[in-house]
Design a binder for these strands. Sequence first.
DNA 1: GCTATTTGTCAGGTCTTCTTGACACAGTCG
DNA 2: CGACTGTGTCAAGAAGACCTGACAAATAGC
Lengths: 65, 65
Amino acid sequence: MDNRLKVLRAERDWSQAELALRLDVSRQAVNAIETGKHDPSLPLAFRIARLFGMPIEEIFDDGHA
Amino acid sequence: MDNRLKVLRAERDWSQAELALRLDVSRQAVNAIETGKHDPSLPLAFRIARLFGMPIEEIFDDGHA
DNA sequence: GCTATTTGTCAGGTCTTCTTGACACAGTCG
DNA sequence: CGACTGTGTCAAGAAGACCTGACAAATAGC
């Protein structure tokens, strides 16, 4: 699953650790999502979308556009 | 995680098995999501949203309105 | 150069999501 | 009644999402 996490994080000048804190997950979880190793769970996807103030579909892209 | 799957399914007069077919998951997976036993994975949430033609946020509700 | 921060990654473990196969119970229809 | 459909549920297992703790490599700042 493709995502714009790295860009959105860069726009805010946050480290992965800082983002992890705000999302209440481990730094490794953020890294794994950014590098495409995992998809987030749906609840975590909701927290991410809420944090960045945009719909899940604008952050994640499953390719079946 | 709250969701409107049962209602959306009823509007289309689909059985859980029929919906499962369209989503390419097992009937038990659909049942577990409808009855609140599981959250769908993010990829499955995307398939559901696409099938019903609406954003994920209009089908699922994590309570943090 | 040295130090601190950031990122990527590994291992081992836990819990969740999803699978197949099976069974019980309701409701409908001949 | 008997057959069929729809729903709910269980068990056992595979795969994925998360955890902590640790370490190396790249980057930034002094």
